[in-house]
Amino acid sequence: MSITYLEAIRAAQAKALAEDERVFIYGQDVAAFGGAFKATKTLSKEFPGRVIDAPISEDAIAGLAIGAAIEGMRPIVEMQFADFSSIAFNQIVNQAATQYWRTGVSCPLIIRLPSGGTDGSGPFHSQSMESLYSHYPGLIVMTPATVEDAYGMLLEAVAIEDPVIFCEHKFLYYHLKAEGLPDSILPVGKARIARAGRHATVVTCSAMVHESLRAAQELVNDGYEIEVVDLRTAKPIDTDTVLASVARTGRLLCVGEAFPWGGLTAEVVSRVVSEGFHLLDAPPKRLNAKDTPIPYHPNLWRVHRPTSQSIAAALRDLLSL
């Protein structure tokens, strides 16, 4: 049986609803319509009253989830697009993220963010928000790159006592397939070596894992073995696994789909430089999207974000140093 990344997200929600009566789903068009991407398809029929359509009110959607979480429920919020979570940003970073520290009462909720770019989606349906949310204390930020992680990490998120920002990549929704669903996955907070190598390390997450793997494959022809580290969570960052990889390769390229100023790639470089400077044989590099809004036209979009070609070029540059 072949299952897509999107179907895995739906399956994880179905399992959570079936096994945990505290779980409910709240978001725009999630009930009878099944969600803009069909991530909640038929769930409202299978779990009557527990998959609830919300008005176009991202702030209040997040706020309701926070209140329900405080009261012991396990809300799963679907933001129709990650980009729209900017409206809920205040509730997420100031209300949900501060709740446990301020009051001692935990706030276990999940905000699902359909993230990242696809052909023709433009400036407001393509954003990657993981760095923004990771900046704030009190949140866990997941960025699954595989079908197995999309499923397993979403279930882990339901079990976690804290607010989880679940960045699921729209580009992977239909493309990425697995033969089945896992019984278990690596623990949350542990990075994964997606490909072992010895000449350079690429640290990345989400859809960029796959672009990086393609780049690594391309560099095989040049005689290079590239290690690809899939962070799996943007927060916490598994610095130990990253440092161990850099210790093996001596070279680091961080790849991210988000905008270039600051963010996850800068954080990883900063940690490696301050904690593992002696491991580096060359200055570490970063590759991100361009510092413009995300373009609409596919010709522009494909150049705006990192791709296997631009990652391969950056790696060749890094390996020449």
Binding site: A60, E71, T103
Partner: peptide, 26 residues
Amino acid sequence: RPKQGLIAMISHLGTAISVANGMLVA
């Protein structure tokens, strides 16, 4: 004391109302 029904306000106005909504939904 959120567990006793008393929401600890943040400074951003209006934001506690949806939190109360969520508690009532729960």
